[in-house]
Design a protein around this nucleic acid. Sequence first.
DNA 1: AATTCGTGGGG
DNA 2: TCCCCAAGAAT
Length: 288
Amino acid sequence: MPDLVRPLVQWYREHARDLPWRRAGFGAWGVLVSEFMLQQTPVSRVIPHLEAWLSRWPEPADLAADAPAEAVRQWANLGYPRRALWLHRAAVEIRDRHDGVVPRDVDDLLALSGIGDYTARAVAVFAYGDRHPVVDTNTRRVLARTVSGMSQPGPPSKRDLEAMTALLPADRGEAAVFNAATMELGAVVCTSRSPRCEVCPVASACAWRAAGYPDTGDTRRRQARYEGSDRQARGAVLKALRDDATHAVPLTDVIPEWPDAQQRDRAIDSLVTDGLADASGGMLRLPA
DNA sequence: AATTCGTGGGG
DNA sequence: TCCCCAAGAAT
């Protein structure tokens, strides 16, 4: 197999975007918060929220000392607000189990709320410089094309970690850069819809290119329509709670104009079940 | 293993 | 206008 590491690392050193969490000395807490926000939310939307968040809560213990409601409100419109709740829980766990220091061990990281295979290794590698495979959607797409010659990756699998491990340089520092470079290539060159193969640093080593860019199919399911969905209703309820200055809305006044009353009630119930809202005394509010 | 979970910008 | 897509995790 042609070498991907050398050209990819070289390309990254020349073309990597200047992102906040890549600055020297950004800190493990900053990296962890950035990774939570980057779970399914684009870089351009994350950056301003990340800076505001870290300015308000410079250390895990600072966030842990505040109520979950404050985390959910600060999360604003980043989407998937359960991440705000989980990030708050993780801060509490870090304070209680790790003396307020973001853990370095992957298993310790995996045990924290809201942290899975990707985020645990991203923190261990990008914050602490350790040697682990970091596999996100970009990495999976880059490997699917360059190594397997497929237009799109298959469903996420534990094998993805093994595939990346097989390519990982022995040197810790170089491995970290290779992880970042692979993600970066997928983000800015080897994109899902319209890859820019004409500027790709590993085009000459790419199995997909060698095969003539075959369309090998796409196993992913189409994303459900958002308009009219339960998710939209949940989003509207939570936005109403975030925006309410008194921090408590009578249950009967929660998005009263919503066209589907049953869907509204379903949204409220599911938010309470998720711990994103409290209902008591006929009032709905963010979790204390 | 397949579903669910927000929100906004670009093609 | 839609549809696609975005540094995933939990259940």
